[in-house]
């Protein structure tokens, strides 16, 4: 199928992108890697009048060490994120989660910024970035602002980005070796979106759990933290019973969606099972 006609604007810098968005307002859509947007455009579920292509904005590509955190440029592809030495050393969970996105061809083109700005509750990045307490950086004509992952994802295919705002970077904390992590994704076939996903980060401390963070994919219109599980694990013994008890609370307070894959009760069940597996693997990793 062929997308509806649109005006194509290629920009060479973030400033030019911001200018283009300001000029065209809500008629304009940013094109990153295009692996969420172009399929929607072919189905004519997205019909932008102006497409602003960020493909040549080199300042948005790459990962840099920013001291106490890593700064990942929004146009860094999934393939680049997965193989980046800084990401692998300091934030391995993002490399693992990114490896679950689509397939190799998709990861060669798709970008971290595009995946976030798309705001898909079934996407793999949101839950991971939420568990990491990542920060999103955005620029508009007035300047730059930081948005926590918790505030960034606001609804189904909705984010906190304003129409004239460009997501420029994702800031990730550096995790030391005391953190274990794992992402469990349940899907019908390998390329499909998560029916439910659970991303766990566990800090080990002398045989106990210092801190546990669990982000859940597709258990609501936005990614959610398994707060009941996290509360029970803070300071708990790193033992099977404690994990089981805590994972049983993973779906507490959630309102999972219904679709052709799963009803809410089944999604809650998956959240509990996947959270337990993710916690077990985190402690073993």
């Amino acid at each position: 199928m062929i997308p509806a006609p649109f005006e194509y604007v290629r920009v060479g810098s973030v400033d030019e992108a911001v200018d283009a968005l300001s000029e065209h307002g809500e008629e304009a859509t940013l094109l990153a890697g295009g692996h969420s947007l172009l399929p929607l455009m072919r189905l004519r579920l997205a019909v932008p009048e102006v497409l602003v292509d960020l493909g040549r904005v080199d300042e948005l590509r790459g990962v840099r060490d920013a001291g106490d955190h890593l700064a990942v440029g929004a146009m860094t592809t999934h393939h680049q994120v997965m193989s980046d030495p800084l990401v692998r050393e300091h934030c391995g969970v993002l490399a693992e989660v990114t490896g679950e996105v689509g397939d190799p061809q998709v990861r060669h083109r798709g970008t971290i910024g595009g995946a976030c700005a798309h705001g898909d509750a079934a996407g793999d990045h949101p839950a991971c970035l939420l568990a990491l307490d990542a920060t999103m950086v955005a620029r508009d004509p007035g300047g730059t602002r930081e948005i926590t992952a918790a505030d960034f994802f606001t609804g189904i295919f909705e984010t906190a980005l304003a129409p004239d705002e460009v997501l420029t970077e994702v800031h990730l904390p550096k995790l030391d070796g005391s953190w274990g992590f794992d992402y469990q994704k349940f899907q019908r076939v390998k390329q499909a979106w998560a029916i439910v996903g659970a991303c766990a980060l566990v800090r080990r401390e002398d045989g106990r759990i210092g801190e546990a963070r669990v982000g859940l994919t597709n258990l609501g219109s936005v990614p959610v933290r398994a707060t009941g599980t996290e509360r029970l694990l803070a300071g708990a013994a790193a033992e099977p019973d404690a994990l089981r008890e805590a994972a049983a609370q993973a779906a507490e307070g959630t309102q999972p969606p219904t679709d052709s894959n799963a009803r809410p009760d089944y999604r809650r069940h998956l959240a509990r099972v996947l959270t337990l597996r993710a916690l077990q693997n985190s402690l073993a990793s």
């Binding site: 290629r10 295009g34 172009l38 399929p39 072919r42 998709v106």
Partner: peptide, 27 residues
């Protein structure tokens, strides 16, 4: 498939495999 799934349209672009149904010619 024309939906970015099946990979029949895969070509190599600048050394990396891509699905050419999900790339605009202008890109």
């Amino acid at each position: 498939c024309d939906t970015s799934n099946c990979g029949a349209c895969t070509v190599v672009m600048d050394g990396l495999s891509v699905k050419s149904c999900t790339v605009l010619a202008v890109q």
